[in-house]
């Protein structure tokens, strides 16, 4: 029921377009995985399509080239990809070409860094206890 396809970046946009014509009417999910120090290239974008008429799902995986981290946007095919691509840009720093407005969506606009990258720390604040005896 769920078929997985690996697609090259240069074929990606046209392939998604042909899948819409094949009857995958809905884009359910678009996200990315950071394979930091595990795989080359580092980022992989995962798209989940759904066909209501055929009751099928299809997962598309695209490797994003390391040099420029750019991938075409599919908002012109599925308008619903808009928020998802902004989220992936926000969280991973992957740039979607021809996106209508690629700005941060969840983090504040002046945030520096992309939180879901593996080399981004989770930001714990050390707890300072009052009147605690000093160690040294």
């Amino acid at each position: 029921m769920n078929e997985v396809q690996h697609i090259e970046v240069n074929e990606y946009h046209d392939h998604i377009k042909s899948l819409l014509e094949e009857g995958y009417e809905m884009m359910m999910d678009l996200t990315a995985v950071d394979w930091f120090r595990k795989k080359e290239p580092r980022f992989e974008v995962v798209i989940n399509l759904l066909s209501l008429s055929k009751n099928l799902r299809k997962t598309i995986k695209v490797q994003v080239p390391d040099e420029n981290l750019t991938i075409p946007s599919i908002t012109d095919i599925y308008p619903g990809a808009n928020f998802y691509e902004r989220e992936v840009f926000d969280m991973f720093g992957i740039v979607f070409e021809n996106h209508p407005e690629l700005t941060r969506i969840l983090m504040p606009d002046d945030w520096i860094g992309h939180p879901l990258r593996k080399d981004y720390g989770s930001g714990r604040i050390p707890v300072q206890f009052k009147n605690a005896p000093s160690v040294d």
Partner: peptide, 24 residues
Amino acid sequence: YIVSDGSSKPFRMHVRGPSFCNLQ
């Protein structure tokens, strides 16, 4: 969507929330 690397913690955990999409 969970990606596992064989350890006891998810390598990547993503939740597709319906409200996020419906808000568009």
